[in-house]
Nucleic acid binder design. Structure first.
Lengths: 233, 233
DNA sequence: ACAAAAGTGTTGTCTGTACACCCATGC
DNA sequence: GCATGGGTGTACAGACAACACTTTTGT
């Protein structure tokens, strides 16, 4: 340790994760009933602490992995929340991350073990500390991101239909879209491959399944695109 | 202190600031020659540490104030840099902020006292640690932000001309713009008030000065706008 | 009178938006 | 055969992009 550094304070550094999922109709966030004080039994985001020997991003991945058993998940740093009084238990600075997972990938037994629940983002109960603020900021960030990157697909199963994809965008942006304009725009990006197979689970006629073209997907993910039409952003 | 928290590690939490300025032609960043080890005498962003009793945003404001004497500055959190090996002196997690100031507001004596220099963002020398990465990320964020918010004005003097404003956008986006389309677009936002006075410093004919209409400016700052035409984003 | 930068308009093209009907199928 | 959701095309309007000449004035 260099001399210059010794005089400074050391702080607890926490991670909080906003985990989004999509159930086919609604955008959901994963919340837990907090298992310890302060605020025991209140609704909370999942979280943990950053250890001395791990990087912050690394800690975030670990926290997500511990709770969901999932790795290689889309996850991005959101913001640092560092007000002195945000956690009444102690001075804790928290780095918030948001992640996108496929609901069906998340094993039921882990959910039960952690007392975790998927909650509609439009019907979120009161949360501890500043977690509600984190969630709202994450929603806003998700909107921003999805407007320029083909990110929404992280939330859908491998195969999905255009109506499903449209419902996802409608859930993210809390709006309604014209299906003709939607399909025109999305298909024009050239990142979807149509399959011969149809999904008959929600209509008699059935809707064609699509998968994405991972190559073009990656290109677009880097370069970004415009979904003004869809997102209104 | 709550029991549950005691077992966790405590870390040094630093602040680093990317401070942008505009000299009329080029976008610049404020850099200092580091006054202490490690990496003494190397180029660095300005920074400091977060104290036990201050919020993180508060610490960032303090650091900026100490260096520049300026308060009430546009400043936003950028990102947390938390790799374990980013600072060889010790484990330090750093929260980066970017700020926009008017170069002429920054008192010369403070610059000298802190060994600070304005450096063209296109000609940045090697920087300590991961500071270069911070700077690049800040530039990218500035581009994003300026595409949707009337933020560029934070960098200009009270009165400015359209050609000056255009140069600023050209510097931020490292591109060239058509002045006819530029003035059309900017004036259509309705946030500029034309003065009778002209600036003759760069041409015989002289260019009209403008100031912004603070009321509309604030509305747009909240709602956001689109400068696709200009920014290419 | 000329050099140097400021100011100003038009047109074609493209993109977005609004809108309505037929299709396929299970019951 | 009918009810349900899926799929497709067109026309109008507004925004963007490309482009060149005139104005002002200090020297």
């Amino acid at each position: 340790m260099i001399e210059e550094y010794k005089q400074h304070d050391r702080l607890l550094l926490a991670i909080d994760c906003i985990i989004f999922g999509f159930d086919g109709t609604r955008l959901k966030a994963l919340l837990v009933k907090r298992g310890f004080d302060p605020e025991k039994n209140k609704w909370s985001l999942i979280g943990g602490f950053v250890g001395k020997k791990e990087g912050v991003d690394e800690a975030a991945r670990r926290v997500l992995l511990e709770l969901t058993g999932l790795d290689n998940i889309f996850m991005e740093q959101l913001h640092v929340f560092g007000d002195t009084n945000r956690d009444p238990g102690s001075r804790v600075v928290s780095v918030a991350y948001y992640a996108l997972i496929r609901i069906e990938d998340y094993a039921e037994e882990l959910m039960i073990a952690h007392n975790a629940h998927w909650v509609d983002v439009k019907r979120v109960p009161p949360l501890v500390f500043d977690h509600k603020k984190m969630l709202r900021m994450a929603q806003e960030r998700l909107r921003q991101k999805a407007a320029n990157h083909p990110i929404g697909f992280e939330l859908l199963p491998e195969k999905f239909t255009l109506p499903q994809l449209q419902l996802l965008y409608e859930a993210i942006y809390e709006t309604e879209l014209d299906k003709r304009n939607f399909s025109k725009k999305i298909l024009s990006l050239g990142i979807l491959n149509k399959l011969d197979e149809k999904d008959h689970s929600s209509s008699r006629k059935g809707a064609y399944f699509y998968v994405f073209n991972r190559k073009k997907y990656r290109e677009l993910d880097k370069q970004g695109f415009k979904l003004n039409t869809i997102t209104g952003l």
